[in-house]
Simulated scan of single mutants.
Amino acid sequence: MPTYGYARVSSSDQNLTLQVEALTRAGCEVVRSEKVTGTTREGRTELSTLLDFIRAGDILMVTRIDRLARSVADLQDIVRMLKSKGASLKATEQPIDTSTAAGKAFLDMLAVFAEFETNLRRERQMEGIAKAKAQGVYRGRKPTIDVSQVQALKDQGLGASVIAKRLGIGRASVYRVLERQV
Rank of each mutant, 00 (worst) to 15 (best):
E21D: 14
R32S: 14
S12H: 00
E42D: 06
D58I: 14
S33C: 03
S10D: 05
L47P: 04
T39V: 09
R67W: 07
A7Q: 13
L18P: 02
T24A: 15
R70K: 08
E21Y: 09
T40N: 15
A26L: 05
S48E: 07
I54N: 14
F53Q: 12
T63A: 03
A7R: 14
R8N: 09
A56N: 08
S12L: 02
S48M: 12
R55N: 09
L23V: 02
R8V: 10
S48H: 14
R70V: 01
G57W: 05
L68Y: 08
A22F: 01
K35F: 07
T63S: 03
V9L: 04
V36A: 04
L16Q: 11
Q14W: 04
G27E: 01
G38H: 07
G43K: 05
K35P: 00
L51F: 13
L50C: 10
S11P: 00
T39A: 15
D13L: 07
L23M: 03
A26P: 02
V62G: 10
R70L: 06
E34V: 01
Q19K: 12
G27T: 13
V36Q: 01
V62E: 00
G38K: 06
I59Y: 01
E42Y: 13
A56R: 14
T39H: 11
L23H: 09
L16C: 03
